Simulated scan of single mutants.
Amino acid sequence: MRRSVGQILGRTGIRIPLILWSIAVLYPIFWMFLGSFKSNAEIYRNPWGWPETFSFANFSQAWTNYNIDISVFNSLIVTAIGAVLTLVLAIPTAYAIERINFRGSKMLFTLYISAMMIPMVLGWIPLFFLLNDLNLLDNVFGLAIVYAVSQLPFSIFVLTSFMSTIPKSLEESASIDGLSPYGILFKIVTPLSMSGIITVTIMNCIQFWNEYFMALIFLQTKTNYTLALAIDYISSEAQYTNAWGTLFASLVIAIVPVIILYAIFQRRIAKGMTEGAIKG
Rank of each mutant, 00 (worst) to 15 (best):
R3H: 08
R3L: 11
S4D: 08
S4K: 13
G6W: 14
Q7T: 11
I8S: 09
I8K: 10
I8V: 13
L9D: 03
G10H: 03
G10K: 09
R11G: 14
R11L: 12
T12I: 09
G13H: 06
I14N: 05
I14L: 15
I16R: 02
L18H: 05
L18P: 03
L18G: 05
L18W: 07
I19P: 00
L20F: 11
W21S: 13
W21T: 11
W21E: 07
W21Y: 14
W21Q: 12
S22K: 05
S22L: 13
I23N: 03
V25P: 02
L26C: 10
L26M: 14
L26P: 01
L26N: 03
F30S: 06
M32E: 03
M32L: 15
F33A: 05
G35T: 13
G35A: 13
G35S: 15
S36Q: 02
S36C: 04
F37I: 01
F37G: 00
F37P: 02
F37N: 01
K38H: 01
N40K: 01
A41E: 12
A41V: 10
R45L: 11
N46K: 08
N46H: 08
P47G: 04
W48H: 10
W48R: 09
W48L: 15
W48I: 11
W48D: 10
